[in-house]
Design a protein around this nucleic acid. Structure first.
Length: 479
DNA sequence: ATGTAC
């Protein structure tokens, strides 16, 4: 189906010539060889969207709906295209890490980890908060202004040690957009979205308590970020919940209509896209930004709840400073080599190197943290971009990457295997909140690639390097 | 990932 061009000097980057155009794939030979041929069929469909400037896969790539998870796809902002299928329905889904001053020794006793997990569960209901919870928060303020729409009680930082870190240590705290598009959503969507504020959601979303292990080669950066060996950190993975879903569904229908009217399409009817300048394209981009506002505020409020739990267990002086918050499902404008680009990242994380002007101010000199989760029971990584990332529009992986569908995992993986992967019954058990592991077996590590191999491909390719490895101590999942 | 229809 395709040829591999020989012009790449990077053994971790394959430049393919598919019938519809070029595709860069960042992966070791072993990972590249293990890819399902369907990811190339899917790429070939995505490459048929007109006017594309660039498209690539990260090593954790796997098949999704219309577009693979692990895709970076770039158009020029002028005359470009936007695709709700490439962004996917969990708009703004991403990662957040908070730092504590606690040492993992304080959680060495499994009973202490259980106590903490139970406390966190009390603040993060699995589905929705009860009526009246967060009644001091106006949802339309959050939708319109992101973190800046939250009451002072939540920001800036009655709870972080350095002033306003939760507003400055984020990829984006607020997206401005044309609010007239908000009229189209029924009251039920607003109501549900309010009750879902500060909740994790399902699937691969989680909150995890982890122990830091600094990579010696990056000790300087690690210490500049406030990390120390043995430090307890909190990693959060969540998105825009029902709000993003409603944006995806509503705008997707409109974009599909525009597509038909313009006679556009590819071999895959699920792959929807439209020129940026169309009414449907503009409505989607505006409401996409509203979902990015929801998602960042949602992760912020999850962190707020977890901080309350830490205070219940470790005392009122416990701090949870914000390391960083960034997304891996989104599209927005970025400038590259002086050109305004419209960049889609679906299951791909931006990792800017030291000195890049788009780093937020606190991370201008070091590069910002790129937060990469592993699968359950396995390590996660704090990375930083390298200058070589420029070739890939500064995109790196977003995690381990699924190798088995949820249904296949339920069929093929036993609860015993899952228990063993989490060390259940040993001193090192990763404590999980769920009453039965059976209910979340589709998230067992046997459903995912080995995150260490993914990271090796990213570092080998010169896209980013490891600052710290974070080993799981306890995990909180939705149902 | 999510809500909704089956």
């Amino acid at each position: 189906m395709f040829k591999i061009a020989n012009d790449s000097k990077n053994p971790y980057c394959k430049r393919l010539e598919l019938p519809a155009g070029p595709l860069s794939v960042y992966a070791s030979d072993a990972l590249f060889g293990s890819l399902d041929y369907k990811v190339f069929e899917m790429a070939n469909n995505n490459l048929q969207i007109p006017e594309r400037v660039y498209m690539s896969y990260t090593p954790d790539v796997h098949v999704g709906t219309g577009t693979c998870i692990g895709t970076t796809a770039v158009w020029n902002a002028a005359g470009g295209y936007v695709s709700p299928s490439i962004v996917g329905s969990d708009i703004g889904c991403g990662m957040r890490v908070h730092l504590t001053r606690l040492h993992a020794e304080e959680l060495r006793d499994v009973r202490q980890r259980r106590k903490l997990v139970k406390a966190i569960e009390g603040y993060l209901p699995t589905e929705e908060h009860r009526r009246g919870h967060f009644s001091d928060i106006r949802l339309e303020h959050v939708i319109r202004k992101g973190l800046h729409g939250l009451p002072n009680k939540y920001v800036p930082d009655s709870y972080t040690p350095r002033k306003a870190t939760s507003l400055t240590h984020v990829e984006s705290a607020k997206f401005g957009f044309d609010e007239s598009h908000l009229d189209r959503f029924p009251e039920s969507v607003w109501h549900r979205s309010h009750r879902q504020l500060g909740t994790l959601g399902n699937g691969n979303h989680f909150a995890e308590i982890q122990e830091v292990q600094i990579d010696e080669s990056s000790r300087g950066v690690a210490e500049a970020w406030g990390l120390f060996d043995g430090q307890v950190v909190v990693m959060i993975h969540s998105g825009s919940r029902a709000w993003g879903g409603a944006v995806h569904q509503h705008c997707g229908t409109e974009v599909a209509k525009t597509m038909r009217a313009l006679g556009l399409g590819t071999a895959d009817p699920r792959l929807i896209f439209a020129p940026l300048e169309t009414d449907a394209g503009q409505a989607y981009v505006n409401l996409l930004y509203s979902a990015l506002n929801y998602a960042v505020a949602n992760r912020h409020l999850i962190a707020y709840g977890i901080r309350e739990a830490f205070r219940d267990v470790f005392g009122t002086k416990t701090e949870l400073s914000t390391l960083y918050d960034l997304m891996h499902n989104y599209a927005w404008e970025e400038e590259h080599d002086g050109t305004a680009c419209f960049v889609h990242r679906k299951g791909a994380t931006r990792a800017l190197p030291a000195g890049h002007p788009d780093n937020p101010a606190p991370y201008r000199e070091t590069g910002h943290p790129a937060l990469i989760p592993g699968s359950m029971g396995t390590a996660s990584y704090l990375m930083v971009g390298e200058p070589g990332g420029r070739d890939n529009y500064y995109s790196i992986c977003h995690g381990a990457g699924r190798i088995r569908s949820r249904s296949a995992t339920k069929r093929l993986v036993s609860v015993e295997e899952f228990r063993a992967a989490l060390g259940v019954g040993t001193d090192a058990e990763v404590v999980v909140n769920q009453r039965t592991l059976e209910s979340i077996i589709d998230e067992s590590p046997q459903a995912y690639k080995d995150v260490d191999q993914i990271i090796e491909s990213v570092t080998g390719a010169g896209l980013a390097r490891v600052v710290a490895k974070c080993k799981p101590l306890a995990t909180v999942k939705g149902t």
